[in-house]
Design a protein around this nucleic acid. Structure first.
Ligand SMILES: [Mn+2]
Ligand SMILES: [Mn+2]
Ligand SMILES: [Zn+2]
Ligand SMILES: [Zn+2]
Lengths: 137, 137
DNA sequence: TTTTAATTTGTAATTATTACAAAATTGAAA
DNA sequence: TTTCAATTTTGTAATAATTACAAATTAAAA
């Protein structure tokens, strides 16, 4: 039972740990896939039949504002969400559409300022062909 | 008259240089702002009263496919477009919403492969408070 | 000119996201 | 326990960016 983890995450940031919030956060944290709202909904709908998409949107907005989650803007048509326990960058395969975590660190990440601008967030997206799709050439 | 520049850009990539395509590309190349479809439309509508938004969408899709333009996915609700003559990264100010070009280069950009994946595109987005908004604190 | 292909245009359809108010739940006070 | 206000969830409707599509226009070829 890993429920403790998300429970503490929520408590620590003063977000009331409702059943829905726990399940949504738990799904993202445990699966480490980078789900869209629809994917979260399809999956959790099986456990919580009454779950509403609006609740998912509301919850994700709160968790992002509290810096528990981060938005991934790598797709043109939908936002994906991620739990960034340790900061990392994302690689999206054009062929299979999978989004991979990449933990090689970019020196940029240590910059607090750049050309006079104060940096508060980083989004580094790499796009190409993943190693699994590539070898099939 | 800088029309030569966009004319050549289009010819070189075998895109037929229609009036609309020339104007759309010229607007992006000359202004170096990072316009959304709506901004392109509002601006060019004054010159070409009959211009259709669908034409803008069509043209942008072609120019991106030909690697003349690139999409900037820094906003949640709309795509922006850029002419990347020399590769650079983007900084978006949370306060004034301006998107700045940053030409400091990240070593990542020289990587052709990362953790076995073949990299074809880079999107580096920094978010924070720009130098103009910051000093008002 | 006539014919054919490419491009542009306007409208309708699609779809992710947001707005909003009613219903349900929670949690403390009485 | 009951009461009651605050919070959360839910369902539906509205919004808005993008795409689909077919007719109209324009350009190129014959
Ligand atoms: Mn990730
Ligand atoms: Mn730029
Ligand atoms: Zn792949
Ligand atoms: Zn600013």
């Amino acid at each position: 039972m890993k429920k403790e983890k998300v429970l503490n995450l929520l408590k620590r940031k003063n977000v009331k740990p409702s059943v829905q919030r726990m399940e949504i956060l738990n799904y993202i944290v445990e699966n480490k896939n980078h789900p869209s709202v629809d994917e979260i909904y399809s999956h959790l709908n099986k456990k919580i039949a009454t779950l509403s998409k609006t609740t998912i949107y509301n919850t994700l907005k709160i968790l992002c504002k509290k810096n528990i989650l981060t938005e991934i803007l790598i797709e043109e048509d939908e936002v994906r969400f991620d739990y960034m326990e340790k900061p990392h960058i994302h690689f999206k395969c054009k062929s299979c559409n999978k989004i991979y975590d990449v933990f090689k660190k970019c020196p940029l990440i240590n910059c607090k300022k750049i050309e006079g601008h104060k940096i508060e967030e980083y989004h580094i997206y790499l796009i190409g062909t993943c190693k699994n799709c590539y070898k099939d050439d």
